[in-house]
Amino acid sequence: MESKAYLNPQAILNIAFYRFVELKNLNDLKAELKDRGNELEIRGSILLSPEGINGFLAGEVEQVRQFFAELSARPEFPNLECKESFSSHVPFKRMIVKLKKEIITMGMPDIHPALDTGSRLEAKELKKWLDEQRDLVLIDTRNTYEIEQGTFNTAVHYDIETFKEFPAELEKRKEELKDKTVVMFCTGGIRCEKSTALAKQMGIEKVFQLEGGILKYFEEVGNAHYKGDCF
Rank of each mutant, 00 (worst) to 15 (best):
E161D: 06
M108P: 02
V207P: 01
L126W: 06
V137W: 07
E171I: 07
E161G: 04
F185A: 04
N27P: 05
K124Q: 07
L126I: 02
F68K: 08
T181E: 07
L130K: 02
R120L: 11
N143S: 09
E76T: 12
K30Y: 06
G118F: 01
L80M: 03
G52D: 00
I53P: 01
E2F: 03
G188P: 01
L71Q: 05
V182A: 10
F56E: 11
K216R: 12
H157R: 13
I53D: 07
K101R: 10
L13F: 02
A73P: 00
S49D: 03
E193N: 09
Q201R: 06
N143D: 01
E70V: 09
A199L: 00
I103W: 02
D116W: 01
E39N: 09
N54Y: 04
E146L: 11
Q10R: 10
S119Y: 11
E205N: 06
G107I: 12
L47Q: 15
E60S: 08
K180V: 12
L198H: 14
E219M: 05
Y6E: 14
K93R: 13
V64K: 03
V21Q: 14
D135A: 15
L40G: 02
K100R: 10
V61N: 13
G59M: 08
E175A: 04
V64G: 01
R134P: 06
D135L: 15
T162R: 06
W129M: 15
D28K: 04
R94V: 11
Q10W: 00
L29Q: 04
I160H: 05
A5I: 14
L13G: 05
R191G: 02
G189R: 13
F218S: 07
E176Y: 02
E171P: 06
M1N: 09
K200I: 01
Y226N: 05
Q133Y: 07
K124E: 14
A11G: 07
E76S: 10
N14L: 15
P9E: 11
E148V: 04
I147V: 15
I53T: 13
Y6L: 02
Q149M: 08
F92W: 14
F92E: 07
V182M: 12
I104T: 12
A155S: 13
L47I: 12
R120W: 08
E176K: 09
L198P: 04
A73N: 14
E132I: 10
D110C: 11
E220Y: 00
F68P: 11
L210R: 05
V97C: 05
E161L: 03
P9Q: 05
P78I: 15
G118K: 02
Y145I: 14
K180D: 01
F20M: 13
A69C: 12
L99D: 04
L99Y: 06
L99E: 12
F67K: 09
A31L: 13
E146P: 08
